[in-house]
Design a protein around this nucleic acid. Structure first.
Lengths: 128, 128
DNA sequence: TGAATATATGAACACCTATTCATATAACTT
DNA sequence: AAGTTATATGAATAGGTGTTCATATATTCA
């Protein structure tokens, strides 16, 4: 019987070794993939998307965002912290209020790309 | 007695009515925000990001992807279904194998934007 | 035909996460 | 100073999600 040298039980052997080896060489490291996924994870929540869209129209303080979205101040504050840690928004303090605004010009580009994807519904390919 | 007409208990009144009203008019509907968040949610997983990156280099069958990523065929198949339903990948059947490839060129643009975001600051751990 | 191969899928489980509640901090007001 | 307002945050909880395991479907090969 020919020796099996699988990396771990349950993980299959490649069907096309050349392809797998070639792609393996080109693949970014796991740390990069993890960071990228974490970044998109921040965008993968409706509340945070609505906050970002709102801030794309105007700088706003926490209570105004909460009022706009019909949610509690606490919920908004928790989500703003996530957005702040992802460097997607920045805070400007004025008196008792803290005004938030977009902190990254890529955000609008990314949202625009997502919008395009939804527009085309994936059923047909758009040529650029 | 003056009537309180808050939408719900716990939801604050706006501090700057003009701003809130103005943004409220420009805001996309909840259905759109929900779809957008769902789209990014698909990208917000390391396994799916790695699959998409791999497919950006070459069309691949399920077992090859599983072998490349060091994961079980079942785990990959489950994630491919998510990517398929989001119309991010398409399947081409050949014999026993099913080859997957990217079905949307926006994906690469979005990934590129995310990459730029990470380059220009990335995600920080603490804010203060 | 039966055996082997490639993929898909339902159920279960462990982990993660968004909101709520209570409370803390900080700044303004009187 | 005390009270009010704006925001932040820790803990708890309910709901969501990714992987595993077992199994089903479909195709190829002998």
């Amino acid at each position: 019987m020919i020796q099996d040298r699988e990396e771990a039980p349950g993980i299959p052997e490649p069907l096309h070794c050349e392809t797998v080896e070639s792609v393996k060489e080109q693949m970014p490291g796991n740390d990069f993939c993890s960071s990228l996924a974490d970044f998109f994870k921040v965008l993968g929540d409706m509340t945070r998307v609505r906050i970002l869209l709102a801030l794309s129209f105007s700088e706003m303080c926490v209570l105004d965002i909460a009022s706009l979205l019909g949610m509690t101040q606490s919920a908004i504050s928790h989500q703003l912290r996530v957005l702040r840690q992802a460097r997607l928004v920045r805070a400007r303090k004025t008196g008792k209020s803290i005004f938030y605004s977009l902190d990254d010009e890529h955000v609008e580009n990314i949202v625009a790309e997502g919008f395009e994807h939804l527009r085309h519904g994936g059923t047909r390919k758009a040529t650029r």
